[in-house]
Design a protein around this nucleic acid. Sequence first.
DNA 1: TCAAACCGAAACTGATACGA
DNA 2: TCGTATCAGTTTCGGTTTGA
Length: 327
Amino acid sequence: MNKRRDALKAMMAPITAQPSSDDRQTRTPVKSGSLKAMGLSLQSLSQDADEARALREQLAGGDHVVELDPTLIDPSFIRDRLDDAKAAEFEAFQASIAEHGQQVPILVRPSSQTEGRYQVAYGHRRLEALQRLGRPVKAIVKHLSDEQLVVAQGRENLERRDLSFIERALFAARLEDHGFARSALTAALAVHKGNLSTMITVARSVPEELIIAIGPAPKVGRPRWEQLAELLTKTGDRWRQAIASTGFDALESDTRFARVLKGLSPRQPKKTKQLIKSDTGAPLAQIVQGKDRLQFTIEEKSAPAFGSYLIEQLPEIYAAFRRRADA
DNA sequence: TCAAACCGAAACTGATACGA
DNA sequence: TCGTATCAGTTTCGGTTTGA
């Protein structure tokens, strides 16, 4: 829990040294057998292709790659993701870089605060891995304004398509808090102003502490976050009970979201049962009323042919009901 | 196959500026 | 002061895509 809280604080704070999980290499889906092997090799090919494409684009753009001391590079002034990556995944990512080297340079700009230092636009995870390995960082140095930096950062995320809805929403809200215009945000996130509006509304409707506790929830999209935000307006601080429940921290992020949502959702009304009896007291039918369904069960033993009669009469009964409802 | 999520577009709303 | 135009932001809807 504390780890996630620190992660979001890092995202909210102007500058921190928390790592960001910005590379698809660590997001290996769990599969089994030959399918898993095939999936991994396809994924590997896809990653290679992505990296090669990024490299080609950077070279085609006339950018010069330089090697920098990793200790001279600071993170972006706005974090764009919630840290929920498992340590083992980062270790694997770091091992991959240790073995194959850094394939794609990161993008940095010269620091406006301290001469000789740099600030990352994108490539936080590569930087973190190289800092741990004590290796120089291949980087493209560009003079970027704040707006250009966040647009580059946002576009990089966009190309990878691995930021969850709530991470993008928080990124948008943080950018707005830093004084960026909506037009800059739509450029950075490549979304229409309508979607941007919804993202920021959701990010401001859900308490930060709750978002930290849930994490990025990669499988949860806008509708369910909106649903949660709506529930929060009616349930006060009840979400605290959900995140304090035993085993909550050990759950996957998506499951944590589901648990909170379930905990705040109104309980389904219990099905009510009603027994219809004949004038002799024999059971004729049982009615079970649920939330969106009503079951009518005929006791064939006590009332033979009654069910067939009802089915036969049903169109006429419904027509009478419609006449009455429309009147 | 179908539900969930994404995305773009249009309608709507409120704030502000400007001219009569 | 009022009416109108413009702009930014919000809401809603429908088509498309994705993934279980």
